[in-house]
Simulated scan of single mutants.
Amino acid sequence: MIRTLIESRDKTISYAAYRLLKYRFRNSPNVDITMKQLDDLMKGLNYSISDTSTDYSTGNPIALGNYIAQSIIDYGHTDGSNELNNYSNQYYTPTNPALPLNNPDNNSDLVINPNRWQPLSFNTFIDQSGNLIEGSTPTFLGPEWGNVKPFNLNESEKTIYQRSGNNYLVYDDPGSPPLLDISSSTASSDAYKWGFSLVSIWSSHLDPHDNVMWDVSPKSIGNINFESLPNDIQNYNDFYQVEKGGDISVGHTINPYTQTPYKEQIVPRGDYTRVLAEFWADGPDSETPPGHWFTILNYVNDHELFIKKWHGTGDKLDNLEWDVKSYFTLAGTMHDCSIAAWGIKGWYDYIRPISVPFVLWQN
């Protein structure tokens, strides 16, 4: 009996995952390879890929798996993401003309709003998945994402803004970023210039030959008191160390597990900053930025000292139950983070660092 239940459970999970993956990646690059790998995996499990029934009323585990997948797919058509139109923007249009990157210094005729987003035009563009796109001007991805139905964001966290008669939903609104006033000097303009100067200065820290060495161990990095976090844009220059790099974190005196001091790890600053950027950038051969958090979760889950108890209490959970609950919780959290972050980005429509030198040169 137990064996039959386990086999049924495995079938349901396998078919649910298979149908959903087939649907999600049906238009992906190298789709033929992806589809063959999915089909081969199912065939290797001796599962028929031709059984598409969703009527699970008789207790058919295959039909239940297909039904679960179809339910998720159907929900994605109604969640505000515009999935049926390949997630395209429904009304957002950029204020600024595109900046041609082949010769940006020869575009003095472009009139740029210094506080709004600007597209970039490439002769050759390689997207995050490693796909080559000739003569491309990529669109703003997800500026209307605040309209997507959240997992656990509350109505009390939501603000509805309007631009050109269209709604932009913003959760946990942090307020406007600093704006440049080209006619007068203001605190906001000063913060604007300071922030983008910081990007330029910290970009120079990527140089591995500047002979600056850092201790990158927990002894010197991390551990910031909540009271020390900046609560206003004007306080950022007290929090970030402009010339040196990094912030005002004080590190940790003792390793809480070994109860001994951390050993210093002295490395070139340029190596550390480049690896840190690459670690979170997630290029074409990785799991993408959202998926990165799941690799961290996997690392924690697989650690020999980790005990799988929900909220740290009660009985120890088996691996499947723990994976389902922990993945669902993290996925819902990441879903809400994306809605909040891109809702803010879409509404404030802020300029990118690469456009700022051109803007300041014009003015």
Rank of each mutant, 00 (worst) to 15 (best):
D336V: 06
L141H: 08
Q259A: 07
P119H: 00
D285I: 10
M35H: 11
I33A: 11
D315L: 11
M213E: 12
E83V: 07
D247L: 10
L317H: 11
H77S: 06
P218D: 02
A277L: 14
T54W: 09
P284A: 13
N60A: 09
K22M: 06
S220R: 08
Y15P: 01
V300S: 13
Y92N: 04
P289C: 03
P218F: 01
S185D: 15
K43C: 06
S220G: 01
R9T: 12
S338Y: 01
R3E: 14
A98L: 12
P230R: 02
D282V: 12
F226R: 11
Y161G: 07
N298E: 13
N167Q: 12
S355P: 01
I72R: 01
V267P: 00
A281F: 12
K316N: 09
P100M: 14
G245S: 07
N166C: 08
Q128D: 06
N107V: 05
G346S: 14
A281P: 07
Y161L: 04
T333H: 09
W310I: 09
Y168M: 08
L110A: 11
K219P: 04
N85P: 00
I72H: 04
N225C: 05
N46K: 03
P177Q: 12
D32W: 02
N147I: 06
W117V: 00
S249T: 02
T78C: 10
N82G: 06
S203W: 09
S185A: 12
V356Q: 04
S88T: 13
I13C: 02
S217C: 14
T95M: 06
T258R: 04
Q90N: 15
W342N: 15
G312A: 06
T258W: 13
D109W: 08
W342S: 08
Y299P: 00
V267W: 08
F294S: 01
T273S: 08
I296C: 06
G59D: 03
W347K: 08
Y15K: 02
N147E: 08
P100H: 12
S355I: 03
K43G: 06
G222Q: 06
G270A: 04
L5P: 06
W310Q: 07
N113Y: 00
N27E: 10
Y56T: 04
S108V: 04
L305W: 03
I73P: 05
D39P: 11
P178A: 14
S338M: 12
F306Q: 09
Y192E: 08
F279G: 01
S176P: 13
W145Y: 11
D302P: 04
N86K: 15
S48K: 02
N89Y: 02
K158Y: 03
I133W: 10
L141K: 05
E304R: 09
